[in-house]
């Protein structure tokens, strides 16, 4: 059970569906706010890298000098990556040098793995420990290969579309586009488990 004020979720606000993630964070009882720079990041108990265009977000992260900041944040604090966020969490991308991912999770990812927009879809999806959710896939990636410390939480058509490694949770689909708050609540559980930031100096 997540209590009110359970954490401050920062949503990386360089490009993408930022307001949708902030609203989704708030629906779980956490507070949600936009993170544009290092100072904003310091105020966050957890970080979301939202859906958007991974090439554009990666370029803006580099320009802001946030790559190492996000890596070290992810070592200590919960991180959720949705779609483009999943791509950026990867260690390696399949047949695609760009964008250089952040490597916070031991996964190899295929961008646009389900095809172009005409192939984008929504479907019911069975998620381990959560149940059936409505999952919206938009030019979505999938996890091509996962290391031994990665726990697979959902597959679609045999492809890994949700996984976690320690405090990092990634989805190839968009939980922020539906009213079902269970995936964000699951993430909020990780924030509770990690405790408030002031008790855990990085």
């Amino acid at each position: 059970m997540v209590i009110m004020g359970a954490g401050r979720i920062g949503v990386l606000s360089l490009q993408g569906a930022v307001s949708e993630h902030i609203e989704a964070a708030r629906r779980t009882g956490c507070s949600g706010f936009a993170v544009k720079n290092r100072k904003d990041l310091e105020a966050a108990d957890a970080l979301v890298i939202p859906g958007g265009e991974s090439t554009a977000i990666a370029r803006l992260i580099r320009k802001q000098g946030l790559e190492e900041e996000i890596r070290s944040f992810a070592r200590a604090r919960p991180l959720l990556g949705t779609c483009a966020g999943l791509i950026l969490c990867a260690k390696e991308l399949v047949a695609c040098p760009d964008p250089a991912p952040l490597g916070v999770m031991d996964i190899k990812v295929e961008r646009n793995g389900f095809g172009r927009q005409k192939d984008s879809f929504e479907t019911d999806l069975e998620v381990e420990g959560i149940g059936t959710v409505r999952a919206v896939f938009i030019r979505a990636p999938f996890i091509h290969a996962a290391g031994p410390r990665v726990r697979v939480l959902a597959r679609f058509e045999g492809k890994i579309v949700m996984a976690e490694q320690g405090k990092t949770l990634v989805t190839a689909f968009h939980p922020e586009l539906t009213d079902d708050g269970r995936i964000f609540s699951y993430f909020a559980g990780k924030i509770q488990a990690a405790g408030p930031r002031r008790l855990h100096s990085d």
Binding site: L14, Q15, G16, G52, C83, E122, V136, I138
Partner: peptide
């Protein structure tokens, strides 16, 4: 495929860009 959520969602991913 081609639902309203999927079509509108694609544009939502372009925001701020």
């Amino acid at each position: 495929i081609g639902t309203e959520t999927v079509k509108r969602g694609m544009a939502q991913m372009q925001k701020g860009g």
